[in-house]
Every structure is written in structure tokens, then in C-alpha cells.
């Protein structure tokens, strides 16, 4: 990783520390600045309210020319998060072709918060969950809330 990239990550970390978006806690290992751990609170107005989700944000070597990689370490029932042990996400500005270098981690975190409030079933990584979200919202809400109780407390 270039020094420029490291400097930029440090700068963004500083910005996040001085002005942390509400509802999240960012921790960072001094030894390895390319991996951030984020503790995200389920937004009040969402089915994930009351849950605490651990996320891992990894900076690629080519950062900021390539987007950071985000994964949910806490299981979550959501159309845009892969339902496996990776918990990966790939949509919007997290896609390499849509990412632009001036985008910042804060923007990524905001996007994730927004997605918890309002999932995007048209750009889903889990088509069956997306389908349920669209066709049978009650059932979706029930499972999502159930998963919060089981995994995210």
C-alpha cells in the first residue's frame, strides 16, 4: 500500500473520530490500519432496532482508487447482505465501477445505515430474501427481528 493511501486512511480515521456518525462505533488496530471494525446499532425506525452489528471494513491496496470491502460479521437477515459466513455486500458505490476516489468511508457507512432502514430489493445479493421482502413483508420483518434477537444482541 502506498504512503499516500496510508495517509488518506489515517486522515479519514481522524475525521471519523472527531465527527462519528451517530449510531456507530469505529475501532482500529494500530498495527493494521487497513482493517476497521465497526459496531453499528440497528436504526430505531428499522426492523433491526435493538441489534448491534459488527462489521469489518477492509481497505484494498489500491485504495482510494478501489472501494473498501464491507462485510457483516454479525448475521443479519437482509436482501443486500450475503446470507453466509462472509456477510458481504456489493451495491451502489461499493461496486468498483461506481466507486470514485473522492468517496469516503463515512459515505459507505451512511449507505449501510440507510440500507438497514430501507433495503434495496432490486439490487439484492440474496434474491429469495428480496422476494420475501417485496411479496411477504410480514414474514420478512418477523425473520429479520428474530435474527436480531438470536445473533445481534
Amino acid at each position: 500500500m502506498s504512503t499516500g493511501a496510508k495517509k488518506r486512511i489515517m486522515r479519514e480515521y481522524g475525521e471519523c473520530m472527531s465527527d462519528t456518525p451517530p449510531g456507530m462505533k469505529i475501532t482500529f488496530d494500530e498495527q493494521n490500519m487497513t482493517e476497521w471494525e465497526i459496531l453499528l446499532d440497528g436504526p430505531e425506525q428499522s426492523v433491526y432496532a435493538g441489534g448491534h452489528f459488527k462489521l469489518k471494513l477492509t481497505f484494498p491496496n489500491e485504495y482510494p482508487f478501489k472501494p473498501p470491502v464491507v462485510s457483516f460479521k454479525t448475521k443479519i437477515y437482509h436482501p443486500n447482505v450475503s446470507n453466509d459466513d462472509k456477510g458481504s455486500m456489493c451495491l451502489g458505490l461499493l461496486r468498483p465501477e461506481e466507486w470514485k476516489p473522492p468517496n469516503k468511508v463515512v459515505a459507505v457507512l451512511r449507505l449501510i445505515q440507510t440500507l438497514l432502514i430501507e433495503p434495496n430489493p432490486d439490487d439484492a445479493i440474496e434474491p429469495s430474501i428480496a422476494n420475501e421482502y417485496k411479496e411477504n413483508r410480514k414474514e420478512f420483518d418477523k425473520t429479520a427481528k428474530d435474527w436480531v434477537k438470536r445473533y445481534a444482541k
Binding site: 502506498s2 499516500g4 489500491e62 482508487f65 465501477e97 470514485k100 476516489p101 473522492p102 468517496n103
Partner: peptide, 24 residues
């Protein structure tokens, strides 16, 4: 130096659709 780093990388990887203004 940012333009050089970004564009050199993209050209090296053959990702020529990325050779455009970096502004959002």
C-alpha cells in the same frame, strides 16, 4: 501524483473505462 497513481493502476489492469475525471 494521485492522477498518476490511479490512472497507471487502471491502465496496468486494462481497466480503461476508469480513465476519466475522478470527481464525483
Amino acid at each position: 501524483s494521485c492522477l498518476q497513481e490511479g490512472f497507471n493502476n487502471s491502465i496496468k489492469e486494462g481497466d480503461i473505462d476508469n480513465i476519466k475525471c475522478m470527481s464525483m
